[in-house]
Amino acid sequence: MKAFKWSFIIAIFAYLYLPIGILVINSFNASKYGYEWKGFTFEWYAKLWENEALTQAFLNSLLVASLAATAATLIGTLMALALHRYRFPLKATASSLLFIVMMSPDIVLAITFLVIFIALGIQLGFWSLLIAHITFCLPFVVITVYAQLKGFDKYLLEAAQDLGASESRIFRLIILPLVFPAIVAGWLLSFTLSLDDVIISSFVTGPSFEILPIRVFSMVKVGVSPEVNVLATLLLAISLFLVTLSTLLLRRKH
């Protein structure tokens, strides 16, 4: 029974992680096609570095991801604070709308964005891409920050007020330090989401501004080159790092 349990678990993990493992190994494989191991090499990493179109797309991706994450974090944090602090009409509606954005299939969002941009006459490119990314990151920030706010004793703010703190000092001395980890986590989450989005991005960007996932997507149509393995490995490393960081930040110490 025990042997069965363990082999079952191993099978599941193998199913999940073997392809990723092979991909990572192949990024160091001297063989171009990756069917057999021909020795360890950094050659593909160097090649990638020389591939200007690819590095440009990579830089574009980083730019959009960091801008979108920053904007979504700013707006989302304010929204979460408002949802937490104030009672206003349609509050329930506002928060369920956020959930709808979060749960909608990417393709639905993609088409919606495209229709809006065309209707408004916005040129598809950097700006349209940025706006779309901010929008789909927003609910994740709101929910992360709001959950953190909800987790605290609801009388904390009244306690601060009772002790003589003005509205602005309550914000600076109590709210901000308490939700800061959630804000950072929200940013990291947004950054990761933006970095690996393909579907929405492919609808709302134009040839003037190419980002990494789309570039890769067009590359693999003609076969998986070793550079793609390298890129995937790098992205995997970045994502892992960011996700770990945000998990650590959200782990509550009190």
């Binding site: 605290f152 004793d153 009388y155 904390l156 009244e158 306690a159 601060a160 109590i174 330090p177 308490l178 009190h254």
Partner: peptide
């Protein structure tokens, strides 16, 4: 306060 409401940080 009934829940003490100490500032956790």
């Amino acid at each position: 306060f009934q829940s003490y409401a100490l500032f956790p940080h």
